[in-house]
Amino acid sequence: MKDIIFTILSNKKLADRTYEIVLSCEKGAHGVLRPGQFVNIRLDGLYLRRPISVCDWTEDTVTIIYKTVGKGTEQMSLMAEGETLDVLTPLGNGYDTAKTGDRPVLIGGGAGVPPMYGLCKALLAEGKKPMVVLGFNKENEIFYVEKFEELGAEVYVATADGSAGTKGFVTDVVKTLEFSHFCTCGPEPMLKALDNVIDKNADGQLSFEERMGCGFGACMGCSCETKYGHKRICKDGPVMERGEIIW
């Protein structure tokens, strides 16, 4: 982990209350190694940093996508190109692509979609053939579907109100697919629903969200109990293996 100052290259609206920021830094400075890792952003006037998952990265950029859900993210949405952000990076364990097999399914729900992009890219680079299932509430919240398609992934969309793609939830799509492994990120009820519908023998990696204090393992503010003992969602997670989770 390092504390670095990024410069905002772009900050644009992708969908309803959903924005994408591309941050630039010196080559190699951000340290992001695995999809599913996150960064923790300091914002003027707010005491705690805001943890946001990494969507994509290059040697000298990090792309994050966030939903405006409160003061911090609303403040971020107003920031302009050229402004700077104080960021702790990289944080968390991320997904282990060695465990996915050749035909994994990646399932993202709402603000959980972004880390699936970096993961999809990494898996394709390893020669695997991921399927992607993206869930949104309604059509005007949809983002990044074409970006996944441009990567060459097989993409399915579900909306709760049926305004686009399959009417229903990601579980309705996932039930119909055959896959070697699943990786997911989204609200906890979605993760739980997936655990319920996916064959008990299938392995998966699930990324959890929690209110954090520090984001780097010091305060024990986001500890959870797992089958292998206490884990800090920020440092030992946010990605947990299906087999260790106590629901």
Partner: peptide, 23 residues
């Protein structure tokens, strides 16, 4: 000790509330 249930953290103006519970 595992400590208290989550959430254990709440942000405040110029500070935070924690309820770790001696984990």
């Amino acid at each position: 000790r595992f400590g208290n249930p989550l959430p254990r953290i709440a942000e405040c103006n110029e500070g935070l509330i924690n309820s770790i519970g001696l984990q």
